[in-house]
Design a binder for these strands. Sequence first.
DNA 1: GCGGCGCTACTACCT
DNA 2: ACAGGTAGTAGCGCCGCG
Length: 799
Amino acid sequence: MMIRFYLLDVSYEVRGREPVILLWGLNEKSEPILLIDKSFRPYFYILPEEDVDAEKLIPLIKALSKPSSPILEVKVVDRKYYGRPVKALKVTTSIPEYVRTYREEAKKVKGVSEVLEADIRFSMRYLIDKDISPSTWLEVEAVESEGSQRFRVRKIYEVKGEFKNAGIDLPPPLKVMAFDIEAYNPRGSPIPEKDPVIIVSLADNSGDLEILTAGEGPKGDLDLIPQFTERVRAKDPDIIVGYNSNGFDWPYLVKRAELLGIKLDVGRSADGLPRTSVYGHISIPGRLNVDLYDFAKEIYEVKVKSLEEVAEYLGVMKKSERVLIPWFEIYKYWDDKAKRETLLKYARDDVISTLGLADKFIPFAIQLSSLTGLPLDQVGAASVGFRLEWFLIRAARKFKELVPNRVERPYSTYKGAIVLQPVKGIHENIAVLDFSSMYPSLMIKYNIGPDTFVDGECSEEECYVIPGLNYRFRKEPPGFYKNVLTTLLSLRKKVKEELRKYKPDSPQYRLLNERQKALKVLANASYGYMGWTGARWYFKEGAEAVTALGRETIQKAIEIAKELGLRVIYGDTDSLFVSNDRDKIEQFIEKVRDELGLEIKVDKVYTRVFFTEAKKRYVGLTLDGRIDIVGFEAVRGDWTDIAKDVQEKVAQALLTSGKPEDAIEYVRRVIKDLRMGRIPLEKLVIWKKLTKKLEEYDVSAPHVEAAKKLVELGVKVVPGTEVGYVITKGSGSISSRAVPFIIAKPEDIDTEYYVKHQILPAALRILSYFGITEKQLEAAGKAQKTLVDFLTSKKQKSK
DNA sequence: GCGGCGCTACTACCT
DNA sequence: ACAGGTAGTAGCGCCGCG
């Protein structure tokens, strides 16, 4: 019979000496089903050396075969390698493990140049070869198969035919369950060897909410964990979401269960437990375990990526409307019976927020999953580079291109983009023009890639010559990158056209919009990917060529702008800030299109924009009256809130020229408040991320010293930990006085540090341009030359 | 012993 | 753990200084 199903995940198991592919899915009634395929076999490729006849290698490879782990087939196939047609050997083995064995032995055979695609996991191999993706609807001829006690699905089928993609369509109603655990933590970070799980909160998209609690004592979770597994199995979610669940909740539960002798049996397979899998994510058989923190990390606007902050930013739950408990005090709320109710509410708010985040992130994740072919639970955990790489691997198969091996290369750098020195000061009515997808467009236009590169002579007739580098790229035929990028961009164009057919609040619109965003992300990653030494399709000369062309493009654009009489104020990589002269800009856009063959368009207009002498920093007033702050302290996560607030106020006053003297007054008032101890401690916290292990730091830095103090308190500190600290009074270096804010007392704060190193620098960054000095800001009361005086005197001068 | 200087380490930003 | 370009803070070693 024909089965139509939505593919969730893929895995495999070995039965006897046969690998069996397991396709976890949902049928049209949204019931969990399993499709098994026993017919697929693992394989890899052998690339013979240049002058070696592939046929003659066959017996040599066959001779490696051992009866206990046989090679099933060796045959010559036509493929391409970096665009060049090659004869390769396809070596098929019986089970995936043998691929690893034979690839090593094959490498040693004389006449073998390279072993390829031996590092592609079997289940991914299946999806790629069948050209099917998780998070899509599929159709296949299948027969119902014997039920098995092992699999907790509605039905099991055996695949009998070829898959058909059933098109882009809305996903079935997916059962999403959010979970969150709280652990007892009297010594800082909870230690699974000692501290029990005290609360497990569960919420699902059918509206159910459950807060499970532990009994008393160090083994109070002995009943709690089985309750949790029971609830998961009863609810039978397709997707389980958590917040940092791969980093905390799952590993903690796994460890506790192990210690207590409980089977953490939450999957759709009775013999499968949660286990660490690719990209550090935790895999649960038959369900998609999605850690939403992976997606939260990608929101750069949110500086401190706690669940509360991210939920607040996305409008999922207001901080003001929820219970907030500092994580290091959780145990107190548990021990104190009067406070326990508050803790339960906190756990509830956390799990509701988590479920809310799923709503925001999952639709995008689904699109990314269907495009890259990575299952939903992996796609978030995989870095940008790997997401694109899987997309490329799938594309390679369509072009019969062999996938290059991942090789370790030393880090290597090359010249990048141009950043113009800004014309400092306030500029009125400025348009910001951006090249549309500059780097991808250049890659397409100049056919850049490893397979089109010509090492040696090539006429300008046949090749593009890259300015300044003397690199040459064949004009024809289109290379791998060009093909892939053309596909990505034309797909995106099609999706955007389709988008217009739907109302913005319809589910279809949402789906297509997320899809076009995912396509954009992949296209924009291609240049960076090419220059990444870890990439399979790494090609430094190509990346160098792209930036060289980018530099030439922006230089030419500046020339065109100047010829037209447009004043260029600033520019960075692919953007230009010019006087907003409608007619000239129209001509400019046309000329750029005609002469450079690239699209540039007005991205935004500032009624007023201010630059200091620094690059990558400006503040602008948009047409709708908003203030854009770019690069300055006010948008940096490693400055205190108080300094950021002050700078924002100053910027606002400056640009709206409403009452700029208020800015100075404001700065003074804040300094006064600070000295009076009227600024809450939270506004004085500096957040910095640890990028490596504590012992790897060469010099002492405030956040490192603060982190060491955290460790003393029993807090777990790993690379990636955000350290929040304050500077306290005393003698010695700033580092020695940096203290984790969680143990800092307001009376210990070194207010003068905050005046001199936070508020004044942030305010003066902008105000010093107007001749305002530190003294003036610090001086109380006395009238100084105000910003208004300055602005009016300047205007008169220019008249 | 200490302030100034130049350099390095480090982080977070911009495109 | 996709790229390079950039600003900025704090630490640290060195120099000069009777």
